[in-house]
């Protein structure tokens, strides 16, 4: 493996991401867990920048750290005894173990083996010369031959999510 500044930065961001993730699941204080999660999400934003996807990195910070992390902290505040978790595992740990194992296998078969597995040429690792910009993304969103339908469906999905959230959160009236 070639050792250059790029791989050092990749290593740093990987450590931040994985370390933050580890802290999230092992922390007994839910707020600390949320802070670790934010650290981990920052690491992911850094990885996006290394992949020359600055738009996704900004979205990562804006949506995941600016909105979802805040929402998680709000949600934690809605629960009781958030600073004194007596046990890390709850009753569903076996179920989540199965799900994560399945996800891992899926990633292994779907992404890792086809790209890095035996029988794949190293040439496949070369990044594409074609660099798509955020403008291209915008054009593709509203092009009748490309993604205009998913674009509108995304809006519909967001509407449904908001209505669902309001119905669940305000079921008392």
């Amino acid at each position: 493996m070639e050792f250059n500044i790029h791989s050092i930065v990749f290593l740093i961001f990987s450590v931040i991401t994985l370390g933050g993730g580890l802290g999230t699941v092992t922390s007994r204080n839910l707020i600390h867990g949320a802070v670790y999660l934010i650290v981990s999400l920052f690491g992911v934003a850094g990885l996006f920048i290394l992949l020359s996807a600055p738009f996704l990195a900004a979205i990562q910070v804006l949506v995941y750290i600016g909105a979802i992390a805040i929402l998680i902290i709000f949600a934690v505040m809605l629960t009781r005894s958030m600073t004194r978790m007596t046990e890390i595992y709850n009753r569903q740990w076996s179920l989540s173990l199965v799900v994560s194992a399945l996800l891992f296998v899926l990633l292994l078969v779907g992404i890792i083996l086809p790209v890095w597995g035996p029988g794949t040429a190293n040439a496949a690792l070369q990044p594409s010369e074609l660099v798509a910009t955020t403008v291209d993304l915008g054009v593709a969103f509203v092009d009748g031959n490309q993604f205009v339908l998913p674009f509108e469906v995304a809006s519909l999905l967001l509407t449904a999510a908001m209505i669902g959230a309001i119905v669940i959160a305000r079921d008392r009236d």
């Binding site: 934010i38 600055p54 600016g66």
Partner: peptide, 16 residues
Amino acid sequence: SIGALYFVAVGSIGTL
């Protein structure tokens, strides 16, 4: 290239 979005994203860290 995403300067304006960077401004909003960084601003949300202040909230945190």
